[in-house]
């Protein structure tokens, strides 16, 4: 649900990074945070466990400049990927304007990806959002690992709506901005068309 503030001439949209535990969602946000200009980014908030697993969410506010006199702002959230944090994930996808699914390419995480994608669909549905139509990107992360499955194999299992797919190595920043740009473009294109999201 974009928030449009005419008094401050600001548009704010919520982008959510979803996916299985340890897939690299937080790493995506950290890379964006480190590489963004100081005046483009707000404070990054991470609610994490002692071992750096996301406990509730990460948030990174970004300002991307202006369009037609409106400041364009995005709030990037990650969900906690561990299975038992499901109630938290459901809270965080509320009001999402776009979703990036960060898949873990490793063979051992194949089932976890599928389970997480199903879980995403269900949690969106419970918030009145349809995974078939919300702006959406599939990121295949950890392409650097020898245990990574072939891209085609992963696409066949995880790609379901002809969505943009990006191969990524989030720790090296590969594919990270491509993913973000695609989310932003789709979100703004949808706003232009006047289609309410959720």
């Amino acid at each position: 649900m974009p928030f449009i503030n005419y008094a401050h001439r600001e548009l704010t949209c919520k982008l959510v990074y979803y996916g299985p535990g340890l897939g690299g969602k937080t790493t995506n946000l950290q890379w964006i945070y480190e590489k963004s200009a100081p005046d483009a980014k707000g404070k990054m908030v991470s609610l994490a466990t002692e071992t750096d697993r996301t406990l509730f969410f990460d948030l990174l506010p970004l300002s991307l400049g202006q369009i037609r006199g409106f400041k364009i702002r995005f709030q990037l959230y990650t969900v906690p990927g561990q299975i038992f944090y499901d109630a938290s994930r459901r809270l965080i996808v509320k009001g999402a304007d776009a979703v990036a699914f960060v898949a873990d390419s490793q063979k051992a995480r194949f089932d976890a990806n599928i389970e997480s994608l199903r879980n995403l669909e269900e949690n969106l549905r419970q918030n009145g959002i349809d995974l078939a139509t919300i702006p959406y990107v599939l990121q295949l992360n950890k392409r650097d690992l020898p245990t990574a499955l072939p891209r085609e194999h992963l696409e066949k299992a995880l790609r379901f709506r002809n969505e943009p797919v990006f191969e990524a190595v989030a720790v090296q920043g590969i594919g990270v901005f491509e993913t973000l740009k695609s989310l932003v473009k789709q979100t703004l294109a949808r706003l232009r068309a006047g289609v309410p999201v959720g």
């Binding site: 974009p2 449009i4 548009l11 991307l64 400049g65 369009i67 037609r68 006199g69 409106f70 364009i72 901005f177 740009k181 932003v184 473009k185 703004l188 294109a189 949808r190 706003l191 232009r192 068309a193 006047g194 289609v195």
Partner: peptide, 21 residues
């Protein structure tokens, strides 16, 4: 209406979006 005709966002071009980056 936030989008659609008459809204400031109805007129966004692909170029506007590219410029953001």
């Amino acid at each position: 209406e936030p989008g659609g005709p008459g809204s400031p966002f109805a007129e966004i071009t692909d170029e506007d979006i590219d410029n953001l980056f």
